[in-house]
Write a protein that binds this DNA or RNA. Sequence first.
DNA 1: TATTGTTATACTCTATAACTATA
DNA 2: TATAGTTATAGAGTATAACAATA
Lengths: 139, 139
Amino acid sequence: MSEPAPELVDAVAELAFAVHARLTALAARHDLSLTQMRLLGILRDREPPMLELGRHLDLTKSSVSGLVDRAARRGLVERVPGASDGRVVHVRLTDEGRTFARAVEQEAAKALSELLEPLPEPDRARLAQLAVRVTRGAT
Amino acid sequence: MSEPAPELVDAVAELAFAVHARLTALAARHDLSLTQMRLLGILRDREPPMLELGRHLDLTKSSVSGLVDRAARRGLVERVPGASDGRVVHVRLTDEGRTFARAVEQEAAKALSELLEPLPEPDRARLAQLAVRVTRGAT
DNA sequence: TATTGTTATACTCTATAACTATA
DNA sequence: TATAGTTATAGAGTATAACAATA
């Protein structure tokens, strides 16, 4: 392992905080937590059971229950009984939730690309490329 | 404004989530929230009043009160009455808090540099450089 | 009056443990 | 018995509004 080079590590951490803060603020403007926003994103192309949802979000089943309760109360998602296994409950977006999720997602993309505006185009692509290489090899 | 190029934006968002998750997990191993960890980091070289702390953390004064209460209950920080202005309360690390903060900070640097390991050294420096340029121009 | 901070209250988020229903 | 999910309970984190003390 090579020497950490602390200020370089700091730079990456600061970028991460900036991204996180932007997304959190955006979510808050729609009365969503970042977790709720991620929930909508996950459900965009899936109808997973509660436990699987928990794996995606790294939450316990009880936390997922509460999360889905609150989203369902707002009419964004709904629970669907499993067809083959009576114990399983799938979660899916309602029509309203899908429309909403789509809008929020577009805003998020816009917010992040605004954040990246200090970089001219070729560097932006370079940053993204490096980011991909890190996350591909990540835990 | 140029076209968003969604998958590039996604890559940066994913990197941010990975960094955030690492730091959150590390903090949790010490029974800290990420906010508590940031609090310790801020106090490393400052003894700010409550309101200023709130500006650093982007929290209301009431949230800061609770945050400092909990950190103080653990013996990590202490409140110090302002000398010139009787309304002001400064916050500073205790000796124990300082030792603890130092240890956690080193672990954090190590955790992040591990995360960046998929990149060979020159690329790591490039990533950091790009990150700096984004955050320098950022909100 | 204005400012700094705390307190009262409420809600989200999260976890652990106990419980229910199904397999 | 084992698994999927819910519920009861508790604590952190956050906010708004009302309050206290100081300026």
